[in-house]
Design a protein around this nucleic acid. Structure first.
Length: 887
RNA sequence: GCCCGGAUGGCGGAAUUGGUAGACGCGCUGGACUUAAAAUCCAGUAAACAGUAAUGUUUGUGUGGGUUCAAGUCCCACUCCGGGUACCA
């Protein structure tokens, strides 16, 4: 009797499909619910990768386990199907993106179904479906119509926005402008990244550090000014930060990354008077305590006051510098970070704490987009300022004595020859005007100076965030259209809810429009419209970025076919929050931050019932593959590599190669296709192997022999547990009962903790013992089948059927541990001398410490270690260890 | 530079949270079955030394220190690898 996985898996997949085994019923009366969510994939043309099934199998195991524990489980799958590749393909071939998308989704669905994942396919969603993006547009309208009330720290409808009397007085336009400035979504000129190759605007975060576009890899990325939709996510910075503290079941690393991304800093804004100009220059600093060490100021080249600050004799030089800076991207600026550049403006400011005259420079190491776009420079205590001052020979005044640093360093710092950013005691920090922080430490100094500034009206405590407004539009065809109309008189209106969705026009050519316009700019009929009064309007031609659809998809699964609302409120209240969310760490910041932001807005508007969408988050690790390289470090494609005696060599040259671990890639020819694995070993083996490789969150290399190992295990399981000759009535012995119940205990807790690798090893131990015993009782076999079922569901169903069941194992009660079988009456104590284990002696579990100590010392084996020495101490830890200290 | 995470046999990885290091799997070695091979089954497998052998001794969780009766686990310093971020004042 062979383990014919092909037939067996087909049989059960058909059974599940026919019986709708995993259809989720909205039984809102069951208090036990579990929402297990996978990060839905972008259905690319290359099909499923072995990385996909890793997370999917993990949530599937938990889903199956929860069902068997009486939970009402929501476990859905869908497609994040808007995106560039389909559009690029359309530009090249003329094939409509919807056709490509459809085909890719079909491939993905087929592949995913072949893995035996227990999704409720009736809830499948697709972000490109008008029935779906109708509600994405609907949410956009909500964002547009919401403002953030700082006092209440809450988003509220713009209808509730109080309009100041002086604005009201200025008329309707002023009121409109005032409201527009408060909306969470707004339309404005924005300097954006423009990828020449993709002909697309990219968000800041899509441009990598090396200046390349993350999607296409070219470095042809430049700045461009375009009218763009932006979302005011920084308004929610504080809420997004505070929310992180409530997410106890998120990895700390992800929370840290989000905190860093939001980048909150506390400090002060300080006004510096400028000689000969009536307007003060305001700076933001996190170190107001170092004001006494400020020996110059720097303003960004784009600073609005620059023009007035520059003196005539310096104008030419400054203009030249500003122009050069404007041609540089932010990236060039940072790339040249090693060498700081800048020009003296010719004018001086007055340091408010000591009245000193300090020069104002313009330099591009100060960014217009952060803080006030101007800084006070304290070269003695800020590394960037130090470098700049050194380069241009500006005065460096040490005001913080590094008391506890070593003498040499301290001396250099005091002389202004080294920068010191840590704590110390202030020196030279007393002004004529009642401010004296000499001798204080950093923390106290900062507070004292802020208090003084506020009292004097020279500045205030201030908070800044790195988080910027979210550029929310793309010049693309294959994305959600904005429900927006621009009228010829300049008014912007949103399409009313009842007219949603705004569909994409049918088009034949998908080339971008001129000057960075979306292809939609060429969509004749669709583009223009006329209102009842004959006013002409033009639809928004930008589309939403790919993030949009994934910001709220978890909500749509709750009620995917609803055409009256994005979802039913009762159902939302029942299913939310998501109990387990598994996906790649690459989404640690952007997707998860964006979707938390949307969720919080929806929460503030009363549309969803929870403040945070995802209760437990887990990142699966990446699956890598072995690759080979020469001593010189050049990579060799896997098909050119031979193996001999555990060593690797180049088939052609014979050169010995080193095995390394690398990402799967076409060039290295080490890509593993899940379909091939399924054909060769079956879906259960693929699932099992991916879970057995190592901890779920670790990055680990794929090995074919590893798959074979778990395949062999399943063969053994099948050979033994599917054979009626090995399942016979009769008592189990104590060893079997103990292992069985240990297995129930371990598999249960391991699933709860997502430690699938050790759960599987326990199933192997149990199987090995059963085979050794030669027979098990039907009861034991049934428990085994249940324990196996979340991991290898096809085989488990098959066994279950063989054991006489009429229906699926999926809803059978999960086995319970009987602690009686785990209890031992004796424990074999490891006995160590001076911490080294020497031998073992068995004692009853309830033996007293004294008893054990005495017996051990009297034991013949102990004599060898005691002989000629003095017993100094006897440590007995009940049911753990005995340690005897001799000397 | 800064913030996280990691380092355990030939390999992937276990280790009840301070208590027998190396579970389970791969690989390898030997044996059984076979005309033979594959498959399967059984046994062995951290290293070094001693012994015909059972066995014994020593060393051993990236490096160096420390705490402790006892450290893979805790503390300090460092090395290397991976991820994030980077003129954010």
């Amino acid at each position: 009797m062979e383990y014919n996985f092909t037939e067996l898996e087909k049989k059960w997949q058909e059974y599940w499909e026919q019986h709708k085994t995993f259809k989720t019923v909205d039984d809102l009366s069951n208090p036990k619910k579990f929402y297990a969510l996978d990060m839905f994939p972008y259905p690319s043309g290359s099909g499923l990768h072995v990385g996909h099934p890793e997370g999917y199998t993990a949530t599937d195991i938990v889903s199956r386990y929860k069902r068997m524990n009486g939970f009402n489980v929501l476990h859905p799958m869908g497609w994040d199907a808007f995106g560039l590749p389909a559009e690029q393909y359309a530009i090249q071939t003329g094939t409509h993106p919807s056709i490509t998308t459809q085909e890719n989704c079909d491939t993905f669905r087929r592949q995913i179904k072949s893995l035996g994942l227990s999704y409720d396919w009736d809830r499948e969603i697709n972000t490109t479906d008008p029935g779906y993006f109708k509600w994405t547009q609907w949410i956009f309208i909500r964002l547009y119509n919401t403002w953030f009330d700082k006092e209440q720290q809450k988003g509220r409808p713009v209808a509730e926005l109080p309009i100041p009397a002086d604005i009201e007085k200025q008329g309707k336009m002023a009121v409109q402008d005032f409201i527009d400035e408060k909306r969470l979504a707004y339309y404005d000129n924005a300097q954006v990244w423009w990828c020449k190759k993709c002909q697309i605007v990219c968000a800041n975060e899509e441009v990598l550090n090396d200046g390349s576009h993350e999607k296409c890899g070219t470095k042809e990325v430049e700045r461009k000014n375009l009218k763009q939709w932006m979302l005011r996510i920084p308004h929610y910075a504080e809420r997004l930060l505070a929310g992180l503290d409530t997410l106890e079941e998120w990895p700390e690393s992800v929370k840290d990354m989000q905190r860093n991304w939001i980048g909150k800093s506390k400090g002060a804004e300080v006004d510096f008077n400028v000689e000969g100009i009536d307007e003060p220059l305001r700076v933001y600093t996190t170190r107001p305590d170092t004001l006494f060490g400020a020996t110059y100021m720097v303003i960004a080249p784009e600073h609005p006051l620059l023009d007035r600050i520059v003196t005539n004799d310096k104008r030419e030089e400054v203009d030249k510098y500003v122009k050069a800076a404007s041609l540089k991207s932010d990236l060039d600026r940072t790339e040249l970070a090693k060498e700081k550049t800048g020009v003296f403006t010719g004018r001086y400011a007055i340091n408010p704490v000591n009245g000193e005259k300090i020069p104002i420079w313009v330099a591009d190491y100060v960014l217009i987009g952060y803080g006030t776009g101007a800084i006070m420079a304290v070269p003695a205590h800020d590394t960037r300022d130090f470098e700049f001052a050194k380069t241009f020979g500006i005065k460096i005044t040490c005001i913080l004595d590094p008391e506890h640093a070593d003498a040499e360093v301290r001396q250099k710092v005091l002389e202004g020859n080294q920068c010191w950013t840590d704590d110390g005691a202030y020196i030279n920090s007393a002004g004529s005007d009642s401010l004296d922080i000499n001798g204080m430490n950093k923390e106290k100094g900062i507070q004292t100076v802020i208090d003084w500034l506020e009292k004097k009206g020279l500045g205030t405590g201030a908070v800044n965030y790195k988080l910027r407004d979210w550029l929310f539009s793309r010049q693309r065809y294959w994305g959600e259209p904005f429900p927006v109309i621009h009228w010829e008189d300049g008014e912007v209106t949103l399409v009313p809810d009842e007219d949603l969705p705004v569909r994409l026009p049918e088009m034949e050519k998908f080339q971008p429009g001129a000057n960075g316009e979306s292809p939609l700019a060429n969509a004749g009929d669709w583009l223009t419209l006329t209102d009842a009064n004959g006013r002409k309007g033009r639809r928004e031609t930008n589309t939403m970025p790919q993030w949009a659809g994934s910001c709220w998809y978890y909500l749509r699964y709750i009620d995917p076919l609803n055409d009256k609302a994005p979802f039913n409120a009762q159902k939302e209240k029942y299913w939310m929050p998501v109990d387990l969310y598994i996906g790649g760490a690459e989404h640690a910041v952007l997707h998860l931050l964006y979707s938390r932001f949307w969720h919080k807005v929806l929460f503030d508007l009363g549309i969803v019932s929870t403040d945070e969408p995802y209760r437990k988050l887990y990142n699966q690790g990446m699956i890598l593959a072995f690759a080979y390289e020469t001593k010189a470090g050049s990579k060799v494609p896997s098909d050119e590599v031979g193996e001999r005696d555990g060593k690797y060599y180049h088939k052609d040259t014979g050169e010995e190669l080193q095995q390394i671990v690398a990402k799967m890639s076409k060039t290295l020819k080490n890509v593993v296709n899940p379909d091939d694995v399924t054909v060769k070993y079956g879906a259960d083996s693929l699932r099992l192997y991916e879970m057995f490789m190592g901890p779920l969150d670790a990055t680990k290399p794929w090995t074919d022999t590893g798959v074979k190992g778990v395949y062999n295990f399943l063969c053994r399981v099948h050979r033994f547990f599917a054979d009626p000759n090995s399942i016979k009535e009769g008592e189990e012995d104590a060893e079997m009962l103990k292992t069985l119940h240990q297995s129930i205990k371990k598999v249960t807790s391991d699933i709860e903790n997502l430690k699938f690798n050790t759960a599987i090893s326990q199933l192997m131990i149990l199987t090995n013992l059963a085979i050794k015993k030669g027979r098990v009782s039907p009861g034991t076999a049934r428990i085994f089948a249940k324990l196996l079922s979340p991991f290898a569901p096809h085989l488990a169903e098959e066994l279950w059927e063989k054991y006489g069941a009429q229906k699926t194992i999926s809803y059978e009660a999960w086995p319970e541990v009987n602690p009686a079988f785990l209890q031992e009456d004796s424990f074999e104590y490891p006995v160590s001398f001076n911490g080294k284990m020497r031998f073992k002696i068995e004692f009853p579990v309830d033996a007293s410490r004294e008893e054990i100590g005495k017996a051990v010392l009297a034991h013949e084996k102990a004599q060898k270690w005691i002989e000629g020495k003095q017993v100094k101490k006897v440590i007995v830890v009940p049911n753990k260890i005995v340690n005897i200290v001799v000397g």
